[in-house]
Amino acid sequence: MEIVAPSTEQLLADFESKINAEIKIEPRDWMPEEYRQNLIRQMSQHAHSEVIGMQPEGNWITRAPSLRSKKILLAKIQDEGGHGLYLYSAAETLGVSREQFIQALHEGKAKYASVFNYPALNWADMGAIGWLVDGAAITNQVSLQRTSYGPYSRAMVKICKEESFHQRQGYEIMWRMMEGTKDQQQMAQDALNRWWWPALMMFGPHDSDSPHSTLAMKWKIKRESNDQLREKFINKTIPQAELIGLKVPDQNLQLLEDETYKHGDINWDEFWAVVKGNGPCNQQRLEHHIRAHKEGAWVRETAIASAKKHNI
């Protein structure tokens, strides 16, 4: 019997019918190269974000003001690293190794969330990061639980559970500080002032300016657009700020008749400057990662050498 390989058109049609039927694409399934590349870009960016995101919070572990807050922060940072691990593993199913992902990061070919290029300057930043940055991330990730690529979707389900804790603990820090002394309240407002706009920028450019979005939406890698997700986040977060007496730093914010908010203009010049490497901490974050990786080389080498000796 003659076996005829299906044509690319047929493979693409099968692939798209699976997508339309909400059947997950698995690593061994045929997929268009653009789909694979889009996922590699997005998943590695997501994994790197988790790992680089450990740095601004790590900046405050040794100054956490109570045993409880130190435990929570340690556990949270550990969670973020764990998310990085799932995501690297899920992304490796696309045929790229973790070492290659790290190399691309170090060479500036792979990105991470620009928000982590902002500095963490006071203890309330630990609250603002959890509440706003994890809050923005979770808005996106809840949607990504339904992403079409199976390993990514499953990683997201697990990650979302932990991220919702992170957001709550961040809000709890802000709430405690707003209940506290004048100094604490000022720290909390200062942190909100500095993190609000970078958090809104996390959703990416407006839909009209988002280069990767069209195919990603068609193939259900992305399920909701940047602007839709940003609006969701804003509508959820502003009442939380008001509840504890914080003021969102947007003079042009409007409450619309349908109880949703219209935000003022986002400074896209700043967004692109940070994306292109000119944020307050871009160089610091990347150099830190490169340095730790280099300093760890002899440890990785001895671990391999020892495993070989003992046939592990």
């Binding site: 572990i61 550990q78 990085g84 990662h289 730790a292």
Partner: peptide
């Protein structure tokens, strides 16, 4: 806890934090 994000690889960074915890 000072060593967070300084580990030779991610798994070891996490193990270190775990012991700190």
């Amino acid at each position: 806890s000072e060593y967070s994000s300084h580990g030779p690889f991610l798994e070891e960074d996490l193990a270190n934090t775990n012991v700190a915890l």
